[in-house]
Amino acid sequence: MGAIVVQLLHAALSSATPIALAALGGMFSYHANVFNIAMEGMMLMGAYYAVYGAYRFGHWLYGVLFALLSGLILAGIFSLLAIVLKVDEFITGIGINMLALGWTTYSLRATFQVKGAFISQTIPPIPRVRLPVVEKIPFLGAVLSSHPFLVFVAVLAAFVCHVVLYQTKFGLRLRATGEEPAAVASVGLSIGRLKFWSAVLCGIFSALAGVYLSLGYVTLFSENMSNGRGWISLAIIILVRGRPVPIMLMSLAFGLLENLGMLLQRYDVPPQFTAMLPYVATLFVLYSYARRLKTS
């Protein structure tokens, strides 16, 4: 039994990471009052370019580099459309998600000559870290050890984001942009520029989520592999009203649920039903959020 719990928690931490990273990115947009729903696309693009860079140049660092670049480019397109040309943010987001899906599907075919998925032994995955001291602790060690390092980056990022958001000048300005843009403009700051930086941060974090998906969680790229994780992260952001540490905790809850499904498969529950769990959970979370709004 103990072994199963350890395995479950280990896997939960692992599948919570991409959701948490994307949600932390989207959080910046949330606070700047930009309705950014492009996390799904940015994540997918990041996942593709992570595999591309790592495979082409033989080192996972190139994968990270390419993924970050792709995230920045998408953030640039988002800013150009939504901030400069003033296209509806929702429409821009959907457009970017479609762009990422179309481009990665096309590139997969054009670059690697495969349909559906690109799998290769020679894609270097991101390294797994073994924590020197923690490893020795009986229960905790097994849960925390030998994860790809991005898992720890995500956990740390939650706290760093909290500090950035609530303790720095940038965070204050960003939140002010969301709450009272006129006040920000009145002290001579550019609202457009602050919104742009929020989009850039969203691009960076979502791309990292993508890197984790295609070089950490598994080592391959398949069509539409983000599979709704960006939307789940959006639901989490709305639910916890963009607070970084609760985002991390909620992501963990989702990760746990996703893997509870794997556990249920042992008892002959068809995989199609267990795969539904995160989405059902999102609906439930939405339900409890609506209930809370009603009572308060």
């Binding site: 459309l81 296209v87 429409i91 479609m98 179309g102 481009w103 997969l108 054009a110």
Partner: peptide
């Protein structure tokens, strides 16, 4: 490849609304 059209579609959507 025919998948190129998926990309073309999204480019058209984005440039059109832009």
């Amino acid at each position: 490849p025919s998948e190129f059209v998926m990309f073309l579609q999204s480019i058209i959507v984005l440039t059109l609304v832009g």
